[in-house]
Design a binder for these strands. Structure first.
Lengths: 159, 159
DNA sequence: ATTAGTTGCTAAGTTAGTTAGCGATTGTAC
DNA sequence: GTACAATCGCTAACTAACTTAGCAACTAAT
């Protein structure tokens, strides 16, 4: 006998855009997994490198971003240092801290893996008009906001 | 000195929709991580359950979908059986195979975690017109196709 | 000056993956 | 029909990446 949640989803009519949205998230996850494998990295390493390429971070900041313990973050940074992808540097003002900085060679190697995806998506994006892109952006921003809200609040069943 | 890939991305103009697209993929990844944690599952378990809720699968099929070894797939199914989420059943025609079937309670528990996301995205989707949704779907399908193509072909640097 | 909190690490342990190999079974070639 | 190849799903031994607990050095707050 199906429970209430199963009954809900059985009767649920999903639009093409909604199905495509969920499939995109799943495809993005799979591609990241494939890229990590090609790069010889774990997915955590890949995500960490993507963040570090934006700006240097401390291991504790990285731990918070990746939602892992500081011990795990230390280990992860150790492995990225071993590969020559990043370097640890002393913090200018706070002697407790270090700054993890991506090396030039690390950045180049990461981009060699990520660029095909950037280029492919850029090409798709360029094939839409400004008006169309505005609609798409509004939809995607709405989806991002909805998902982000769920990250921080517990589901209704926890009451 | 920046390499060629770094120089490319430095000069790269990204549109709002392109930035939103990449941020959506990242937010989807984070939310899946959070949902897995809340459910007390690893991300592999969560992905496996999502697939099994669509249709029963054999451990070897699951291994291919998840891109893990059959040994890992066996272990994963073992743990899902231990939690009462799935059951193994003999295959009707092929005595080598088993079918992994989601239990009613497993399905209910998974949906309790996933439903808030479904509902939130459904609500967003409903706030767009048919014409707008058509544009969004075309964009998302294009993005999915582009990403799927990259899963199967090596990047240009491997030549 | 003292207390509270943060940073980043080590140690010991756990989880979930890997590779190698195997028996049972099915599929293919002859 | 027989022999061989391929597939399925598992076990064993090992590895990678995480966890919790705890610590010294340092900064923030009082």
């Amino acid at each position: 006998m199906a429970g209430p949640a199963s009954s809900f989803t059985e009767g649920w009519q999903q639009t093409g855009s909604l199905l495509a949205l969920r499939e995109l998230i799943e495809t993005g996850r799979r591609l990241r997994h494939v890229i990590a494998r090609r790069a010889g990295l774990s997915e955590s390493h890949l995500v960490a490198m993507e963040h570090l390429m934006r700006a240097p971070l401390g291991p504790a900041e990285l731990a918070r971003i990746l939602d892992v313990s500081t011990a795990a973050s230390t280990g992860l940074v150790d492995r990225l240092v071993q590969r020559g992808h990043v370097e640890r540097e002393a913090h200018e003002q706070d002697r407790r801290r270090t700054q993890v900085q991506v090396t030039d060679s690390g950045r180049e190697e990461m981009l060699a893996h990520l660029l095909p995806m950037f280029v492919a998506l850029d090409r798709l994006d360029a094939s839409f008009s400004d008006e169309e892109r505005a609609v798409v952006e509004r939809y995607l921003r709405g989806a991002i906001a909805a998902l982000q809200q769920l990250e921080t609040q517990p589901p209704p069943s926890e009451a």
